[in-house]
Computed example of a mutant assay.
Amino acid sequence: MADLLQRFSGNPFSTSVGQRIEQATDPSMTSENWALNMEICDIINDTEDGARDALRAIKKRLQQTAGKNFTVFKLTLTVLETCVKNCGKRFHILVSSKDFVQDLVKLIGPKNDPPAEIQEKVLSLIQSWAEAFHGQPEMQGVSIVYNELRNKGIEFPKSSNEPKVPIYTPQRQSSQTTDVRNITY
């Protein structure tokens, strides 16, 4: 029971995935560590509690650095975006929850005075998640917040003409390998 309480109320960086998120967003980092970001995704995909533990650590890091260290905040957003693009439905359901998205919006509010680049990144993530998860009832929280913001007059970044990377993680097949020559992009 004590272990369960520690997991919900304790340090989110005490878990395996939390430790790696802390490393990937360390203030001494000068750029993204893509190998570490992908390792985080692997832990999320391969463990039962990985998605929940990762989101707790990401949320904590964003709260710690909002208004203080925008370099770490940006690294954390990159970890978050990488996880959304490379993890499965368990993670998507948590990220698309109305509460998480509203918390993300609060972090880029006037109180924290983030640079325009950070505001645009967060709004762009919300917009792309709303589009990607549209029509999936268990992931409608992000669409609700997106529409509320648009109705309040919040302007989202214009979509580029570049094709968007889909938010889709294929199921792993442990005993089969895929011939990359047969995949069309």
Rank of each mutant, 00 (worst) to 15 (best):
M1D: 04
D3H: 04
F8L: 08
G10T: 04
N11F: 06
S14Y: 00
T15I: 02
T15F: 00
T15H: 00
S16F: 03
V17A: 00
V17M: 05
G18H: 01
G18P: 02
G18M: 03
Q19D: 03
S28G: 00
M29P: 03
M29D: 04
M29E: 11
S31L: 10
E32L: 15
A35Q: 13
L36C: 00
N37V: 06
M38V: 02
E39H: 03
C41I: 07
D42V: 06
D42Y: 05
N45T: 05
D49Q: 11
R56S: 11
R56L: 14
I58G: 05
K59V: 15
R61F: 02
R61E: 15
R61D: 09
Q63L: 13
Q63T: 13
Q64S: 07
A66Q: 02
K68F: 09
N69L: 03
V72N: 08
V72R: 10
K74R: 15
L75Y: 07
L75P: 12
T76M: 06
L77I: 14
T78L: 15
T78A: 11
T78Q: 14
E81W: 15
E81P: 14
E81S: 15
T82F: 06
C83Q: 08
C83W: 03
C83E: 05
V84K: 05
V84Q: 10
N86L: 14
N86G: 12
G88V: 06
V95N: 02
V95M: 04
S96L: 06
K98L: 09
Q102K: 07
V105H: 01
K106M: 02
L107H: 03
G109A: 00
G109P: 01
G109E: 02
P110T: 06
K111I: 12
N112G: 01
P114H: 00
I118R: 10
Q119C: 14
E120H: 11
E120I: 09
E120Y: 07
K121Q: 09
K121L: 13
V122P: 09
V122F: 01
L125C: 10
W129Y: 14
A132D: 11
A132Y: 06
Q136S: 04
P137Y: 08
E138V: 15
M139F: 08
M139I: 13
Q140Y: 06
S143E: 10
S143W: 01
Y146K: 07
E148C: 05
E148T: 08
E148I: 05
E148G: 06
E148K: 08
L149N: 08
N151Y: 07
N151A: 11
P157Q: 13
K158D: 08
S159V: 10
S159D: 12
S160M: 08
N161S: 15
N161Y: 08
V165F: 11
P166E: 14
I167L: 13
P170F: 09
R172I: 11
S175E: 13
T177N: 13
V180D: 14
V180N: 15
T184V: 12
T184N: 10
